[in-house]
């Protein structure tokens, strides 16, 4: 029996990630760019699944490929679907990106190889967490959950507060109206309807 070789999936997914990233950067049609970012997130989720991180894969698939794509489409429905052609020279950004990329790749040379048990990330915090979790948590087998909500419960409270703050901030900026909150399309009196010939198609597209 032949063992499953991870590279059979890894190489195509990483190659597709690179292709998608270039496509997002090159393409001028913003609808297509948004769809490509969704594909990029989905490939990222598949990649996380190969790396044995199903929690992250869940989140990436739902947030990256799902909700953020919808939010970007919603934004495009409010703005426009074509990117303005750039007037500045692409030389400077290219230099910045190349230098940053080279620095990052140089940084990876010192990193321990994937799955190395002696890597700092596996030595700190104390690996004892994994051993004592089952006893401390009265038999809860998922160490990720017990670290997230048990040992590091205070941090997670902070994370939840961050999400709460983000929601409040978006509401403060984008909430439609003080008196008539969240008008539906049928009964919005305060905001004048846009010209139908330009925008109705776009709005419809945005709410696919």
């Amino acid at each position: 029996m032949i063992d499953f070789q991870p590279w059979i999936l890894e190489i195509p997914i990483l190659a597709l990630l690179a292709v998608t990233a270039v496509a997002v950067a090159r393409i001028r049609d913003l609808w297509a760019a948004v769809m490509f970012t969704g594909i990029y997130s989905f490939l990222g989720a598949s990649w996380m699944l190969i790396l044995d991180a199903p929690d992250v894969a869940f989140t990436e698939a739902a947030v990256g490929a799902g909700i953020s794509t919808v939010l970007l489409l919603g934004t495009l429905a409010l703005t426009g679907k074509k990117e303005k052609p750039s007037t500045t020279s692409p030389l400077m950004p290219l230099v910045v990106v190349t230098v940053t990329g080279a620095a990052l790749i140089y940084g990876t040379l010192d990193m321990p190889s994937f799955g190395d048990p002696n890597a700092p990330v596996h030595q700190y915090p104390n690996p004892g967490f994994v051993e004592k979790s089952l006893h401390d948590m009265h038999g809860l087998p998922n160490v990720v959950t017990s670290v997230l909500a048990g040992y590091r419960g205070y941090d997670t409270l902070g994370e939840t507060a961050v999400i709460f703050t983000a929601g409040i901030a978006v509401l403060l900026i984008l909430r439609p109206n003080k008196t008539d909150d969240f008008p539906s399309q049928t009964n919005s009196k305060s905001i004048p309807k846009p010209k139908p010939n330009v925008s109705s198609k776009r709005r419809k597209g945005g709410r696919k």
Binding site: I67, V70, L71, G74, T75, A77, L78, T160, I163, F164, A166, G167, V170, L171, L174, R175, P176, F182, P183, S184, Q185, S188, I191, K193, P194, S199, R202, R203, G206, R207
Partner: peptide
Amino acid sequence: TVTAVMIIIFYAFAGRERV
């Protein structure tokens, strides 16, 4: 909290009319 924030952000974006 996560459910409510995600839904409310979507409502905030989708509920706006194009000006």
